[in-house]
């Protein structure tokens, strides 16, 4: 049985992890490679690097980070932020990334999804969809945001999710900007609506504050994976604690040390 994935997200700018961490046992908690290795050893199922600066210089730095990371971290690595062409994708894949996350570039040039899927395989094209809730009568609705959540597009997120998959996305990374940073839980309605709509795996993101929230996203939200940053970075919970909690509640989880 396919297990649910726990994915720590590392926001990086100019080669440094942005959100501070409180791991005192790391030599340099701001070094993305060292933090990635730490999570790998803790039993993370996958890692996401997001270059939130997304400058051309930052991209070069990210290639270096991915290269160094893939030398010591033997779980899937997903890389996003500022990837605008099939050439950018190739550079990251050649550096050792397994998946490419595209967001604004996919909205601006949807053909980028197809190009990536055809050249590199659907399994390595992740479309990240940033959303904000819209109030429109009784029906819930979500609008797609681009440019790191700054720019509303008027595009319906549920439609865009289906369209991304039609174009070749192998996975969706859904972020609720209403919930992000609030630590009050994922937007379960958004997650469930899109997870039921598409046939590809869905990663829930934005709002994790407790282990119960992870459980809710996987069960009520029907997500295939949960992404979280601060609850892990600040050491509120370890990956292992999160996994043991979810396993104790009956979720299929890979527990390192028991099975590996």
């Amino acid at each position: 049985m396919l297990t649910k994935r726990i994915i720590p997200c590392l926001d990086v700018t100019q080669g440094r992890v942005v959100k501070g961490t409180s791991f005192t046992n790391l030599r340099d908690a701001g070094d993305p490679v060292e933090l990635a290795d730490f999570y790998y050893r803790e039993g993370a199922d996958e890692l996401v690097f997001l270059d939130i600066g997304a400058t051309p210089e930052g991209r070069g730095t990210m290639v270096d980070i991915v290269e160094r990371c893939s030398e010591q971290v033997f779980i899937p690595l997903s890389v996003g932020g500022g990837i605008r062409s099939a050439g950018d994708m190739r550079r990251m894949l050649e550096a050792g990334a397994d998946k490419i996350t595209i967001n604004t570039a996919a909205v601006n040039s949807p053909e980028l999804i197809s190009q990536g899927a055809v050249r590199f395989g659907a399994q390595c094209i992740v479309v990240a969809i940033d959303t904000r809730r819209q109030v429109d009568g009784d029906e819930p609705g979500w609008e797609v945001l681009t440019h790191g959540g700054r720019k509303p597009t008027g595009i319906d997120a549920v439609w865009w999710a289906s369209e991304s998959v039609r174009l070749g996305a192998g996975e969706l990374l859904l972020t609720s900007w209403d919930a992000d940073g609030q630590r009050t839980g994922y937007d379960l309605e958004l997650t469930r609506t899109i997870s039921r709509t598409v046939t590809v795996p869905v990663i829930a993101s934005g709002g994790a504050g407790s282990l119960e929230h992870l459980y809710q996203a996987l069960v009520t939200g029907q997500a295939d994976a949960v992404l979280a940053a601060s609850i892990f970075h600040y050491g509120t919970y370890s990956i292992r604690q999160a996994k043991e909690y979810l396993a104790s509640r009956g979720i299929a989880i890979r527990i390192q040390g028991e099975d590996q």
């Binding site: 049985m1 396919l2 297990t3 199922d45 399994q123 192998g170 996975e171 046939t199 590809v200 295939d224």
Partner: peptide, 13 residues
């Protein structure tokens, strides 16, 4: 087969 998420993506036994 249909009826589950494809790609089969993640950790399995």
């Amino acid at each position: 087969p249909e009826g589950q998420k494809v790609p089969h993506m993640g950790w399995n036994q």
